[in-house]
Design a protein around this nucleic acid. Structure first.
Lengths: 142, 142
DNA sequence: ATCAAACATGCAATAGATTTGCATTCCCCT
DNA sequence: AGGGGAATGCAAATCTATTGCATGTTTGAT
């Protein structure tokens, strides 16, 4: 969730045209408290006004490529999307409930990595580190 | 990779019939130094003698459900499979090269989590924690 | 202001990974 | 030997994502 983010500005800073569709996608991703699947995003947008599913995929790809949005893998089939870390959002781990498919953002401090040494010894390019906790959420435990 | 594992025994201990196909799947997964996709596994098996693709998926699901094999997500589309942690294998992070799709096992010590506190405060069931580093491997950097 | 090039979007078709339904075969227990 | 449940195979369906091509829109140099 990002109430401090000016999506139009975010796009401009990335030198991307701030088209209507892009703003809509970014708003859905950014205003949700946890990551969503491309399908979720498409359905949400569809409710307010028509958009093509492919357009959603393409915009998500674009936003990921430009680092505005993060593609997060789940224990399930589809990728989820959330706002990428920035000055308002520190990188953080996620919890994935294999029962209901809901993904939840965890506190940045809840799981911290001691990986400084690793970065120095690894001889490839590191783009990101993803930490995901899989299990069953409180609601699904009944 | 597991040279110390007796796959037939592993299956028996999980109360699973040690059928030929299961042993073959388990051997391919276990003898490889890094996780493989279901497609990779199918192709490898196919080379020695015929097996149905669906059977491979079903066996993998079964082995995952019984904790013999781990399903590991990648930055890409398909899930990868590796031997689950056991007395011979500690849990460890993975590196995924987005260029060639190769997945690599990292040293268990290379990235360690400080998550004890988290387990205590989280009110759901935790099955596993997955750590994945995404980037470009040494070979693909040229 | 004008026009071409570059970009954004939509639609239909395709691709890749996985799952389902149902028929067949195999294996264990009596 | 024979009945019942598990394991396997095959075809079709499903879900997610991508590609090719046509059309509409914006931008930037003149």
């Amino acid at each position: 969730m990002c109430l401090q983010c000016d999506y139009e500005n975010l796009l401009k800073r990335a030198r991307l045209e701030a088209t209507d569709n892009r703003l809509r996608v970014l708003a859905v991703v950014g205003n949700n408290s946890s990551p969503l699947s491309a399908g979720d995003i498409f359905n949400t947008l569809q409710r307010s006004s028509a958009i093509n599913r492919v357009t959603v995929y393409r915009i998500l790809d674009l936003l990921v490529a430009h680092g505005l949005v993060d593609r997060i893998s789940t224990g399930g089939r589809a990728a989820y999307y959330g706002l990428a870390p920035n000055e308002h959002h520190r990188p953080h781990p996620h919890f994935y409930c294999k029962r209901c498919g809901q993904m939840e953002c965890l506190n940045p401090e809840s799981l911290t990595l001691a990986g400084d040494a690793f970065q120095k010894t690894f001889s490839g390019q590191i783009d990101k580190v993803e930490i995901r906790v899989d299990g069953i959420c409180k609601n699904c435990m009944h």
